[in-house]
Nucleic acid binder design. Structure first.
Lengths: 335, 335
DNA sequence: TCAAAAGTGTTATCCTTACACCCATGT
DNA sequence: ACATGGGTGTAAGGATAACACTTTTGA
């Protein structure tokens, strides 16, 4: 029997025990930060993404995820999207040398409110707790010094030709000194830090690392198993998506001001935006409409309250909120 | 025990038999058409995508796929990318009412040559055999008449408010009469046709369909199980990707002319491009370089042979080959 | 000589980005 | 009055898309 023949359903599917679970990156946002829902029953266990076993009763994977996440957070999800299926053999490598494989299907979910039900051991935390180097809203974050240091060491240590290759790797993920920070490369950056060994889970997984175990201290928290990688995948996907699909609005209250919308986008993207241009871009795309109301809770001149134009979901599914395009200059600290 | 607690590895992973296989959309391209590798041992079995069971010996899913596809086609893959994990409960619905779930992890792979090994029951075929409505290189394809007819019937049949909703659905997938054909919406179009019931597998799966079984005749071939959906996912992904990543070159020979490159892009995208602008765009992006050689096999004036500048993979990973942006006019039949 | 394909030049238009500036409110 | 945020105008620069046109070969 040729290999290709084994594909027929029911033929050749004898496999060692495969366990499949669904892991969810559940995101909400307040103007001051992006939040992700994490689970930690007590301080002795590592923090984890909420996840649950795949259950047979659900017709589709999406429906399955939707139903148990809604049960967990206590209200309906605005948006659900499959991210990636993770299945490295070193997942749960600690669990003895058994030949079983653990598959994890990662999902991204967006919810409007950030209150979790009390009877579950879940809380909302800023995702920058796990990725402090991704928050460039107030200029270069402090951790970047240690990140650069680690990368420089990794590059310096390599022989001539390999050195060039490593330099390019680093440049793709972190950009050249004067490039604009490319917020979409969050996953690539995490993967580089993992590979170098600057992140503790690389040592825990027994991956071959350049850096010694002690170097893996980046003032950042890790997560259970490969959950930090799943979260990085979610961040990269979301940062990419807000540019060409109106997904930010899944995170906004029914009525909001332009600045609140801008702050939310900035929170997700981890960069600062130019206010006048942001407003115009959003306005020009026809993404929002006036409610007629105004609010004085601004700290300055009262602002008009706007709302998302739900029609655009049908009209122009490919319109997103404006973010600067890559390859321009690094964003300055100007307003 | 709360639901979130069940997430711990080894806890709560008791599942009905889950079978997991890897299905591959293996693409190559000649200037006259995009090719996908399909498997059909004899004419009694339905055509299928090559797929194989997930094996424990591979460290990563990508590595697993790579190794068995390379064995199948007989040479190295240029590019491999995970597409999506499919796990609808109605996969293999025909296989009795057992509670087991069949997961299928779809992959996209690009190869340079299109010769398959003789000892496997695989062949290269144009993907437009399965999606004739996706080939707009020579203007509107003939099947579109039947497609429109089917959609129109589905819309007309609905009551007032639902009608509006259906119109919008169709507009998103197929565009407005004067819009440029949006080649990226291939998956959305397939899903709409499935939902309406214009595609035979919708009836086979027992999905609720508007159209009668007899209407599911679109001069197009189907594939085993949900393989046509997986292929549609691959087409959409590839059509999107060529715009911002230099992936077309994975399909090109070492040296080629501008027109060969253009024809390949057109084959994948299913649309015609404007020649002078295409060349300039590619040139301007710095994606190619001169080899110094020329070829006279052009049918006209000899053309310079160019090659891909491999450096750009490191320099500017986010540069793709030019396709017109959506929302402009429909492409005319001009050169 | 003509068809077919290789190429070049140029322009109108739109989008993005940046800079400059005025407006309305609370303290 | 001044800080804070709301809001408008505009101009430079780049990218796109369309049009017109010349060049070089083989049949």
């Amino acid at each position: 029997m040729t290999r290709a023949t084994r594909q027929r359903p029911g033929v050749g599917t004898a496999q060692g025990g495969v366990t499949v679970d669904l892991s969810a990156v559940i995101v909400s946002a307040s103007p001051d930060g992006p939040r992700v829902l994490v689970h930690q029953p007590d301080t002795k266990h590592p923090v984890a993404l909420p996840s649950g076993p795949l259950e047979a009763r659900h017709r589709t994977l999406d429906a399955g995820l939707r139903s148990w996440v809604e049960e967990l957070v206590g209200y309906r999800l605005g948006y659900v999207e499959q991210l990636y299926t993770f299945g490295d053999a070193n997942r749960h490598a600690s669990a003895l040398g058994q030949p079983s494989r653990a598959l994890s299907i990662g999902y991204l979910a967006l919810v409007r409110e950030s209150r979790a039900r009390k009877d579950h051991d879940v809380t909302w935390v800023s995702w920058y707790r796990f990725f402090p180097w991704e928050d460039w809203r107030h200029g270069e974050p402090a951790v970047m010094a240690r990140v650069r240091e680690g990368i420089a060491g990794w590059i310096a240590e390599a022989p001539g030709d390999e050195r060039k290759h490593r330099e390019e790797r680093a440049r793709v993920a972190f950009g050249r000194p004067d490039d604009r920070w490319n917020e979409e490369m969050a996953l690539e950056r995490y993967e580089l830090l993992y590979e170098i060994g600057l992140v503790p889970e690389a040592h825990r997984d027994g991956a071959p690392c350049w850096a010694p175990r002690e170097a893996a201290i980046l003032e950042a928290e890790s997560l259970l198993a490969d959950h930090r990688r799943i979260l990085a995948t979610g961040i990269s996907r979301l940062r990419g998506k807000i540019k060409y699909r109106p997904v930010v609005f899944e995170l906004m209250p029914p009525r909001f001001t332009f600045l609140q919308l801008q702050r939310t986008v900035e929170a997700l993207a981890g960069i600062e935006l130019h206010k006048p241009n942001f407003r115009r871009l959003v306005e020009h795309q026809g993404l929002v409409e006036e409610t007629g109301a105004v609010t004085s809770n601004t700290g300055g001149r009262p602002a008009r309250l706007i709302r998302f134009r739900r029609d655009v979901l049908l009209e122009r599914p490919a319109s997103g909120v404006g973010l600067p395009t890559t390859n321009s200059r690094r964003n300055s600290t100007s307003n």
